[in-house]
Design a protein around this nucleic acid. Structure first.
Length: 404
DNA sequence: TTCGTCACGGTTGAA
DNA sequence: CCTTCAACCGTGACG
């Protein structure tokens, strides 16, 4: 009861802005929606706003998880956050499975398993033993370490390779050209969902800086990093954070936020901030969620949930051999990159601090935490849960607070 | 009443 | 540049 009630104390953050590109398909804005701006979203049966086909903002996802960890029933969470219970169920199930609140990677293609190297080996096997079976080749690929269990081609794939590429061994195959394409990625793509959402904490000034290219640029900010801080279990419980108390969140529109989209004062495109236009807390905030006019009550710990891959282990090719909840995302699975956070859009920079913050949750041993960016103390209250995969299962009791 | 599941219509991004 | 395809999304309904 208390926990549920506490939730209502926390509608203090700026709105998300969940909108379409300038070409806006002009969904009908909910009643009360500011006109003159093309907003984007639909209202579900619970009165919540969603964009069909698009994931809920991390803020909402985080809250779902946090509330669940507080013992609030999914049905209550559903009502509180105005998210369908199916969605709540799905997000919680995923979180329990993977330890991540992130949505899966949308779009794109999975990495090929039939890489030139694999084909080459298959060819070698076939040449060495023309009567070899596909399943034998598969076993040998595994045995020889050419592939691992996550990226070994299926028997049918091997058969296809034998048929299409090796059937005509006399002819150089597409991969025989001497120049080897890049090595196969060992990981699934987009393990970190690229959020095009602006931050609920974006300052008004920053928001005004929105421009048509904003969303695009933001979309390349591959990692929604930590939230500026005002959102944590502590906050959910109604305890104001140091940040709030000190006004560190100035510009975050500390006003309360109505639960319904139509009541949100600002749900429009102009709320889209140019990520590079901000720094520190604002920047972090801005890169969090975009396009969501959903109430984003004081979110802070979101980032801590973000770095992890939403994929189940079975999808974490070649890297996550262990328990799903315990891995450390090494970076964009199949995109060469210098930063573990994946590629960033032009002009978008990610500071190490952000990175550390973002990584913190899954890396108990690392520095950084909920409020690393804002340099404030933040409670790790949410990690007191027994099942918290982020804290080695025990919430890392003790070292729950830290100073950035 | 609650919750897991699934069809559906939608978006996304690599090929 | 456009299309295709297969991944994902959240909703809503069902049991």
């Amino acid at each position: 009861m208390c926990a549920v009630s506490a939730v209502f104390l926390l509608r203090g953050s700026a709105p998300f802005c969940w909108e379409r590109q300038p070409s806006s398909d002009s969904e009908v804005p909910p009643a009360g929606q500011p006109t003159g701006e093309h907003t984007y979203g639909e209202v579900n049966q619970l009165g919540g706003v969603f964009v069909n086909g698009r994931p809920l903002p991390n803020a909402i996802r985080l809250r779902i998880v946090e509330l669940a960890q507080l013992g609030i029933r999914p049905c209550d969470i559903s009502r509180q956050l105005r998210v369908s219970h199916g969605c709540v169920s799905k997000i919680l199930a995923r979180y329990n499975e993977t330890g991540s609140i992130l949505p899966g990677a949308i779009g794109g293609s999975k990495p090929r398993v039939t890489t030139p190297n694999v084909v080459k080996h298959i060819r070698d096997y076939k040449q060495g033993d023309p009567g070899i079976f596909a399943w034998e080749i598969r076993d040998r690929l595994l045995a020889d370490g050419v592939c691992d269990k996550y990226n070994v081609p299926s028997v049918s794939s091997i058969s296809r390779i034998l048929r299409n590429k090796i059937g005509s061994l006399s002819q150089p195959g597409p991969y025989d050209g001497g120049k080897q394409p890049p090595p196969q990625p060992a990981l699934p793509y987009n393990h970190i969902y690229q959020y095009p959402y602006p931050s609920p904490m974006a300052s008004p000034a920053a928001k005004m800086g929105g421009h048509p290219g904003g969303p695009v640029a933001a979309a390349h900010v591959s990692l929604p990093r930590s939230w500026p801080s005002a959102h944590s279990v502590t906050n959910i419980l109604g305890i104001r954070t140091f940040v709030e108390q000190t006004g560190a969140l100035a510009g975050t529109e500390g006003s309360t936020y109505p639960p319904k989209m139509e009541d949100w004062p600002s749900v429009n495109r102009t709320a889209f901030p140019p990520a590079q236009a901000v720094n520190g807390i604002d920047k972090a905030a801005m890169e969090a969620d975009i396009k969501y006019p959903q109430p984003a009550p004081a979110l802070s710990s979101v980032g801590s949930f973000l770095p992890t891959c939403a994929y189940p282990p079975s999808n974490q090719h070649g890297v996550y051999g262990g328990a799903a909840g315990g891995y450390i995302p090494p970076g964009h699975p199949w995109q060469p990159q210098g930063s573990p956070l994946g590629h960033h859009g032009p002009g978008v920079t990610v500071h190490g601090g952000d990175l550390a913050t973002a990584m913190a949750f899954k890396q108990p041993g690392r520095e950084g935490g909920f409020a690393a960016e804002s340099g404030v103390l933040q409670s790790f209250a949410s990690c007191t849960i027994s099942k918290c995969p982020k804290c080695d299962g025990e919430g890392a009791a003790g070292e729950k607070t830290r100073v950035a």
